[in-house]
Amino acid sequence: MGIDWGIIIQQFFSQGVGINAMVFAMAAIGLNIHFGYTGLLNFGHVGFMAAGAYGVGMTVFWLDQSLWLGVLVGLLLPTIMALILGIPTLRLRADYLGITTIAASEALRIFVRWRGNQERTGSSGGINDFADEFFEFNIFTRPGTETYDFAPGGLTIFQFRANDLWVLLIGWTLVAFFLLLTWQLMRSPWGRALKSIREDEDAARALGKNAYAYKLQALVLGGVIGGVAGMLQVISRQAVQPDTFNPVITFLIWTILIIGGVGKVASPVAGSMIYWALISGLITFMRELIGTDLSDELETFLNLSVLNVDQLRFVIFGGALMLLMWFRPQGVFGNREEMALEDR
């Protein structure tokens, strides 16, 4: 048994622009508004994604309404969540928001998977097959076509199912829209005021800026974008599962943002593509490696087997988060001098 390089290459490219890359790029755009431009320590971003996801899912499943109304609810719930979290904590020191948001995102997950919520959220089983309305409009649906392949010279680089392609089209379009929005906002005087709060809240207040109001606006805006990412994620899977919204996902978004470089407009997209391409290629490579004659040695010396190879992805991105924050907080492409300014 040898290593199938073809599947590794295909995973590298397909995942690099795939649904995960799109969803996490969008979520990271929201986090960039929070942390990158306003300096808010949002450690519960996954909670905003969950609020969006359950907003759309519950509207269909529990209230038996249309998916499109659900999308509106999915925009509303993250807004409410941002207000509930922000109003008590944004007057306080930055780390209090961090503690509150991580706790709230976990509490939200506990609540939706509570068995008492069976008929509302589907409890731990979640909500399934609720997004048919979205796929009715799929322009890629063709009888007999399962997947779309892009394989120049026989080497498959991209391979997507028709439904995924439809999600990708809508998703990346929205990502482009949010990038444009961020760019426009951040070059307006509003964005300037936001950045001044990130730099020094007291100075902003002395200059007459209502820091509290700006922070609340930024929290809502970024939270809603996170909510849209959550909606797209569950629509693409046709499933809302409470355990998808594990707190660790928040920090994957942080890692992605830092890979791209905090506080730059396009960094969420760059970071997400890089992360998903590399990690998918790497994990696929390791799976292939386990399939070879080396499997016994891997298990003996590294305890590595098909059972736990996927867990390595968390170890790797956790390690990447540590090392990037320590050695390259400016991101993979950022220039060091700019970051050094901060310390003066």
Partner: peptide, 15 residues
């Protein structure tokens, strides 16, 4: 930054 590093550490250890 140190706080974010502890988060990375937490993930590495946990997994």
């Amino acid at each position: 930054a140190q706080m974010v590093i502890t988060i990375g550490l937490s993930i590495v250890m946990r997994y």
